[in-house]
Design a protein around this nucleic acid. Sequence first.
DNA 1: CCTACCGATCGGTAGG
DNA 2: CCTACCGATCGGTAGG
Lengths: 198, 198
Amino acid sequence: MQQASSGYLKGRIRREDIIAAAAALYAEAGYHGSSLREIAKRAGITHAGLIYYFPTKEALLAAVLERRDADAVERLQLDIPAGLDYLRHMVALMEYNLRRRGLVDLYVRLAAEAVGADHPAHEYFDRHYRMARDHAVASFAVLGERGELRSGVDPAVAGLSFIALMDGLQVQWLTNPDRVDLVGAVRIFLQDLISVEL
Amino acid sequence: MQQASSGYLKGRIRREDIIAAAAALYAEAGYHGSSLREIAKRAGITHAGLIYYFPTKEALLAAVLERRDADAVERLQLDIPAGLDYLRHMVALMEYNLRRRGLVDLYVRLAAEAVGADHPAHEYFDRHYRMARDHAVASFAVLGERGELRSGVDPAVAGLSFIALMDGLQVQWLTNPDRVDLVGAVRIFLQDLISVEL
DNA sequence: CCTACCGATCGGTAGG
DNA sequence: CCTACCGATCGGTAGG
């Protein structure tokens, strides 16, 4: 029993190692550009050993995306209700991202790769964007009901544009970090839309 | 002489065919995901024949990017002076892009792939973003000098955010065209920043 | 421009 | 988890 339990634990740790190695390589080379052999090498096993844990390349991608969501919810409480606090949390997320270039890399590269309907992560990103937009739109709508929105601001457009702005800024920031004030631009964009202090 | 002239013409046409085929495949599969064999097949030659025209995979990428720039300048007059007309032209460019999904695909995919400093198109996109930002910033600055900017708007931030917004909107639009009003969002963003009619 | 080929690498399987 | 292997595909070269 102890043996089995220990075995399970070791397996779980090994799985985490593989997922971390995959996420790092996806960020550097994209999903299609990442080989199972290179991921396995970074995790300290052979590529056939990796397949023992994840039966296909796509299964590993799914695990990486699930892991990313779990982390985001856990550390950044992305499940907080729509409203001003949600927008503040998104600014905090951008600040956090400044110190996690690999994470931003992974996200930007996979999102671009997955615009095609045949990419294994397409449905994930379609759902991801829909949820991000809906939550942002709902947040601006809440502010609107309280009269805390600048006059003439449409929550639907503001929500869509807010998500788009963050994505676009990340691409430019990754390309040349010195020339792009990620957090500053997001903060100013939001403050311009609302009549209360961010 | 006529033979040679005819030969040169045929060569130029063949080169254009290869470039068009490459651009189309880059949009579908990314640069690293596109094989010289598949590009050659679409252009109606063998992959060794393609290499007769473009000695390496990177040389073909360079030709595709040069071609894209030449097209943009020619058809959309991107070399117009900074100011309100430039912003109007960018809105027209977004409208044009709605009918050229492949072009947007190519741009978005390559830009994300090229965030890494070791990608052969990295310098191209670094330069591209710098120029795009500079021109947008200059345009807002011109409006500011004329008193046609909403009070409190910083041209530097507005320029950066404008370029980022367009990029981010394109990713969401490619992922799910039905849910994203590309042109509408850009228009509203700009109109909110300026005090004259767009 | 082609045929024919090179060494390297890919995802996945067999069998233990 | 490994060794050993499969068929397929990659960018590039030789030689014409």
